[in-house]
Simulated assay, not measured.
Amino acid sequence: MDGKMRATAPGRTEAFLPSPTVQNHAANLSLLPDGTLACVWFGGTMEGMGDISIYMSRLAPGSDVWSEPEKMSDDPQKSEQNPMLFNAPDGKVWLLYTSQTSGHQDGAVVKRRISADGGKTFGEVAVLCEIPGTFVRQPIIVNDRGEWLLPVFRCIGVPGARWSGDADTAAVLISTDAGASWTMHDVPDSIGAVHMNIVPLDGDEMVAVYRNRFSEQVLRSHSSDGGRSWSAPEPTDLPNNNSSVQAVRASDGRLAIVYNHANASMSEDRRQSLYDEIEGEETEAPAEAAEPVGRKAVWGVPRAPLSLAFSSDGGERFGGRIDLETGDGFCLTNNSKDGLNREFSYPSILATPDGAIHVAFTYFRRAIKHIRLSPGTF
């Protein structure tokens, strides 16, 4: 994989990002201050293993080749996952990611590194949030009051059981001092709503879309106070297979969402948990106890097709679906070494000032694929 962008259809170019690892997952796109398109993701042998680290590749302005990736984290005792980049108002670039032991997401903490030179180099690793079980996936949003909103999901351990996502909830970490300190604000009635993705509309109006642990529908909630408080998540008309979604406002004002058009009602495929291939006999107490909620997270529903849809009413209704990748989406294993996984998943979407839409996503857990759609193709 040489990282070169190639035209595959009118108005569509694609590239597989170079990587030194056999497994690559959970891409996030961002524009750096100088206009460089950056992509961060995690790579190693298998999600949850100690060799899972954060990587970053860049597509410089005017270039059609993604750079060789730089390793951005390297704790051999931790699985470092779900990275994202944030352009702070002061010009610094933040890299955030999670850090956990094995498959124990209920023990994860959030770490960060900061760049003072536009994302060229990054400073030392520090812990941003040490509340165990705090997980990130989606970008920081700055509201009109200058408050930083970091959507998180809280991986809650159920007593007597390994973490499997059954009791996870959503929250927003808010900073009023440019990231020096944060306070946790829970989203009400949000069991099963994770990967909260905040999209500003106008003024203090914001919407959020969510992954659904129970593999039913993409969820949505609303804020009228700049993201400090949120309505309870409710189903949209889009299916969700307990895999990540991401949304952004396109240049024409529509809400564009990239997701898998699949849910549990469309397939009987199931697996025990996300980490059932690496879980051994070791035990680790849950970070936070919760009463059994009576529902189990649904894992293993195929992660395909990878689709793009649009909304003109802030996510209340979606249409105009475009399938970006099609296949069987087999994900009953995370095995990349033997090529057993065939998912298209964990998409990131970015609307750039030239009117284009960029999508980066997991391709068979072997590679990160980038697609650029020119204006007029969507």
Rank of each mutant, 00 (worst) to 15 (best):
F122Q: 03
K120A: 09
L128F: 03
G118F: 08
E80C: 07
F42W: 14
L128V: 01
P83E: 10
G103V: 06
I52H: 03
L32M: 06
N82C: 13
P61S: 04
N24G: 10
I54G: 03
N28F: 09
T98M: 12
Q23D: 12
L32V: 03
A126I: 12
G146S: 08
S67A: 15
F42S: 08
P20I: 14
D51K: 00
P33Y: 02
G91C: 06
V142M: 05
A108F: 09
Q77W: 06
D51Q: 08
C39N: 01
E80N: 11
D106Y: 06
T36Y: 00
W41A: 06
S63F: 00
Q23F: 05
L128R: 13
T45F: 07
H104R: 15
P69D: 08
Q100R: 15
C39R: 03
P132Y: 03
V22C: 01
E70Y: 11
E124A: 15
F135R: 09
T98E: 09
Y55R: 06
T101E: 12
Q100G: 01
G118L: 08
K111E: 00
S102C: 01
P20M: 12
S30I: 05
V127G: 02
T21K: 11
K111R: 15
H104E: 13
S102Y: 11
R154V: 09
E124T: 12
R112C: 00
W94S: 05
M46V: 07
A88W: 05
V65D: 04
V65W: 04
A38L: 05
D74E: 14
P20Q: 14
T21Q: 11
D106Q: 11
